[in-house]
Structures are given as C-alpha cells and as structure tokens.
Design a protein around this nucleic acid. Structure first.
Lengths: 91, 91
DNA sequence: CATGGACGTGATACTAATACCGGGATAGCA
DNA sequence: TGCTATCCCGGTATTAGTATCACGTCCATG
C-alpha cells in the first residue's frame, strides 16, 4: 500500500477536535478566528466540521493560539473522548 | 491560487521542529521511535530532516507522546528559533 | 422587501504528507 | 571480509490538506 486511508477512528477523532475548536471559538465569527490564525475560513470550517480530520500541526497550533488554547489539551481531549481525567487507568 | 507553496520560513520552521525531535530522540533508534509513535520510519526521517515541514497534527502528537515531550513546547520552540522564553514581547 | 453578513455544501485545483521500494554509506562485530 | 544495524536519499503511488469559486440558507438590519 502506498498510504492508509483514514480509519473511522481517525475521522471520529477529527470530529472531536473540530467540536472542541468550535466550542472554544464561542460567539466569535469563523472569519475572524480564521484570519487571526492565518488560515482561510473554508479550512477552519472543514476542520470544525470534521471534514479535515488530520490537519497540519502548525495549523492547529495557530488555531489554538488564536483561541487561547493549549495544544496538549486539544490533543488529549480529541484523543480521549470519554474521561480525559481518568481514562480508565484501572484494570 | 489553489494552494500556497510552503514559504522558506515554513521550511525553516519544519527544520527546527525536526531538529528538536531528533534531539529528543537521543540515542534511540529511528525505527523504535517510529514504531512507538505508530508511524513509518520513513515518515519520521522526513520529519526529522525537515523534508516534511508541516506534518499532520496527530502525527506530532503521537511523536511527542513517544518521546515524552509537550506539543506546546515543540510548537513554541519550533516557531521561535531565537529566544523561546522572551521572543521580543516588548514594544 | 432588499441587502448584507455569517454559515454551510459541493465542486475544482494543486501541493503536501504518508507509505513502500530500492540503493547506498557508515559503523560495529564475528 | 562478511554480516548486521542504522541512517540517508531517490523515486513512485495514493490520499489528504488547503484554497478558491459558486450557490444556497438563515438572520439581522435598512
């Protein structure tokens, strides 16, 4: 194979990431946030709606900076949908 | 235009990111770290050598996790080549 | 009602990321 | 010398990210 198509899990992860970003954007307009992050509004829309599930690293970094978020928080929250604080570390 | 080719600055930023990752890898083998992060060794080498200047967000997240790094640290260090602690926040 | 802004979707275009294959160079060791 | 491991580089193939255009909808305002 030359490249793995994205798995359903990766798509779901992208949707969670997009939902987090949308939530963090709050009432601010898509256009304004996209401009602040230095990306196009369409790209931001695709990321927020989950249609771009694995964006570039620095795109998310710029977006997180524009929204006042931590990339670590974003990554952890997007990767762990259920309990980010506990994550079933029992056994 | 349909898409901006990467600027020299973006390439330089990618090289800094790669250098940071390589430094964090230390003596561990490329293959082992790539396997731990769930990516191919070729991809890791491309990122480390700067030939993949804008990797996917979750690729860097997995790599940072495998190396015990913070994505915030990585992003800040890669974005600010000179003084990550100061970064000319004056004026 | 008309106008404009913000959001959404679809299509289109082009570059980049990822992965696999092969070859080569270096270093350590039997 | 031969073997192995690691790193590097080239090419190739396919998917994905980013950007633009066009159209439609909703809502607020004139």
């Amino acid at each position: 194979m030359v490249r793995n198509p994205l798995t359903p899990e990766e798509w779901a992860r992208g949707e969670r990431l997009g939902a987090l970003l949308r939530e963090a954007r709050g009432a601010r307009s898509m256009t304004a946030v996209a401009a602040a992050a230095g990306i196009s509004a369409e790209t931001l829309r695709k990321i927020e709606t989950g249609r771009a599930p694995t964006p570039a690293f620095f795109t998310i970094v710029a977006l997180a900076a524009a929204l006042g978020l931590s990339t670590d928080t974003l990554a952890a929250a997007a990767a762990a949908p259920q309990e980010p604080e506990q994550t079933r570390l029992s056994a």
